[in-house]
Design a protein around this nucleic acid. Structure first.
Lengths: 182, 182
DNA sequence: TAAAATTATTAAGTGATACTTCATTTGTTA
DNA sequence: TAACAAATGAAGTATCACTTAATAATTTTA
């Protein structure tokens, strides 16, 4: 968090942008930008967004959220990254960084009580493997129905028509790995 | 940007967390959090970071930077996402979202003047294809040297020892696609 | 090398606004 | 209906992001 300014300066200089120019584009005084780069103050969120856009990067990058992306092979349970909240109340968590070195994508699906997911994975073309950690799920794939219990696994093509219902009296957790196909 | 509060509330409620609880954990008054959720104010960056951590998500997510991740097939040139600034001054840009539906990862490498990249891709195990858009690069792969000119392509295994030097009197741009191997 | 010009930093002050306090409302349960 | 819990609103405060203006550092020009 205290290295925001450092990153801004590094990228700005690498782009051969002067402090004045960037400040003008962002809409603050050069002095203000200098203070931000020197970590005398934090920018407001609005300002930080402007800076990110003008440096063709993201707020997340400037804050340092992707820092470990290329370094850390270990990904702690507590670091699980919430990325999506589906319409039907399904949460998607990344359980290991989807960095350039990973062939498979790994994520955790949390189905809340009475969750009924119709449109999960419609964007995905490939294969998915799931291992049920908690709860009880009913899969409907091509009009056949399968009840999956903790410890069970399921392996299917993501392009098939399917539906997942949480038929457990609580939360169900499905650990998934996926690979896209040609 | 004006939907930060909305996202916070949505995730908080889905986690069955009360406003009071979250506020306490974050270290602000319930009222303050309410105002943030109702978009009466923006949180400070420090507060937003706290909120993100307590909701097991990221600032980027709350700001909505990943919004189009699963939706948009088109990725504009202007949207190119700066993700890394290598030690040797090589910039890495994402040129299409690395979302769950993409089998290949695509990125742009920008080599600045006199850039000499020794450790690029050491993290990557798989294959890389490159098409040189601008400039002139010298690849050294397994002690053999190849000069690549605009329009040329290069295809190699990422685990090999190699080195890329920008031997052009300006910036060189290499468009890359990659796939990880088993 | 000095002088000029450009760029970056610092100091001091101000204004916006993130946050607090406290009262009010809304919702829930008995 | 009361009684409680949870969320929201109003008003005021204090922090701190930002401005202005002067200074310092760096680069350019002659």
């Amino acid at each position: 968090m205290d290295r925001i300014g450092e990153r801004i300066k590094r990228i700005r200089e690498h782009k051969a942008l002067q402090l004045n120019d960037l400040a003008k584009r962002v809409g603050i005084s050069p002095s203000a930008l200098s203070q931000i780069e020197k970590a005398k103050t934090y920018p407001s969120i609005v300002t930080l967004k402007q800076i990110a856009e003008n440096l063709q990067t993201t707020v997340g990058e400037l804050i340092g959220e992707n820092e470990s992306l290329f370094n850390n092979p270990v990904f702690r349970k507590e670091e699980n990254l919430f990325i999506e909240l589906n319409d039907s109340g399904t949460e998607v968590f990344i359980v290991s960084q989807h960095d350039l070195s990973k062939q498979m994508e790994t994520f955790m699906l949390k189905f809340h009580l009475n969750s009924d997911s119709l449109n999960l994975f419609t964007h995905h073309n490939g294969q998915i493997f799931g291992y049920l950690l908690e709860g009880e799920l009913q899969f409907e794939i091509d009009n056949k129905s399968y009840v999956v219990l903790p410890g069970d696994t399921i392996y299917f093509n993501s392009k098939r028509n399917f539906r997942i219902q949480n038929i457990y009296s609580g939360e169900s957790k499905l650990l998934c790995t996926s690979i896209a196909s040609k």
